[in-house]
Amino acid sequence: AEDTGLRVELAEEDDCSNSSLALRLWVEDPKKLKGKHKDNEAIEFSFNLETDTPEEVAYEMVKSGFFHESDSKAVAKSIRDRVTLIKKTREKKPPGC
């Protein structure tokens, strides 16, 4: 996937027991972002695989002042890429991991 300059990873081990994940996002390459953002700060948040969308979380991060509006697409894409990977990993593992 194209590099957005942002890194999203699991903040806690995925126990596959429910649809809620703890994710952590931070800026890995500030040069790739257009607007102002907080460097060296990780943002931890919960993401529900069934009810949340990356765009909605990105919008709330912009509203909270973590990122500029011009970077919301990159934030949403980074979250989407990670969530897609987690879903694929879950599909490969036995039910309940």
Partner: peptide, 27 residues
């Protein structure tokens, strides 16, 4: 810890903390 800040937006909680030094070196 004093370095962690909690922000609420539209019912979602964001916990802001410094990126671990080890992760910064990776990038």
């Amino acid at each position: 810890s004093s370095l962690t800040q909690v922000v609420h937006s539209a019912g979602r909680r964001f916990i802001v903390s410094p990126v671990p030094e080890s992760r910064l070196r990776e990038s």
